[in-house]
Design a protein around this nucleic acid. Sequence first.
DNA 1: GCTCTATATTGACATATCTCGAATCAGAGT
DNA 2: ACTCTGATTCGAGATATGTCAATATAGAGC
Lengths: 122, 122
Amino acid sequence: MRALSTTPFVDERAVESCCPPLSERPLSSEEAEAAAQLFKALGDPIRLRLLSAIASHKDGEACVCDVSDVGVSQPTVSHHLRRLREAGLLISERRGTWIYYRVDPATLAAMGRILSAASAKA
Amino acid sequence: MRALSTTPFVDERAVESCCPPLSERPLSSEEAEAAAQLFKALGDPIRLRLLSAIASHKDGEACVCDVSDVGVSQPTVSHHLRRLREAGLLISERRGTWIYYRVDPATLAAMGRILSAASAKA
DNA sequence: GCTCTATATTGACATATCTCGAATCAGAGT
DNA sequence: ACTCTGATTCGAGATATGTCAATATAGAGC
């Protein structure tokens, strides 16, 4: 199992620089920028369907061919998978002919943390 | 005049038509479309800062003047608040001279549900 | 080497989004 | 009535994003 960039490669891992609960305190500009990258990655119906298809697939992973049936061209699917990977939401790995994707649960959890109620102030 | 609607007014309330956990099953096209509207609303750093400023403000509410200090013009702030309101994330109410915004916790909770691990399948 | 299949990248175009200044609306108080 | 202030809407320009067809890359197998 080698890696085809097991890790994302931009300034990704936005996770590490954001993610306190929204109601804990006003987000800093940097935190907001990092968090926005994550939410932007989920702000497209095709990407949500790809992510959901992978997350719900057997063993939590799927090759591109398993999830390509979303109504757009193959390059477009590839483009969206790349965006999800660059956001840190997906991890990819080549095994022989196929490339398998799976969800990075840490990133998903970080996003959930932002949305969590934290300590209600009222 | 459509009034400063306390309730959103598009086909909003996307909440009602989406939101199963991502890993439960592949999202339908309609569910993905509805959920994407929600995530798109959070996919901007200014909107995240506005939402966070409101959520963390005293009593969980704030007037525009309380949160306008995010580095963009006042019309731009208004535009972003409107987008958050149309997504169902904010509720607005005029009281005298000021208009107060507060977070709709149900919408936030629905988004959190999508991200939740649900039943891990592997 | 060659070919076949699976996936990624490039380049171009159309649409969506963010932003601003200017204008407008709404309520409070004189 | 007028004016002042808080907030929204309008119109336009710049940038970002989604999409495709064409091309390229990578591995398997002959």
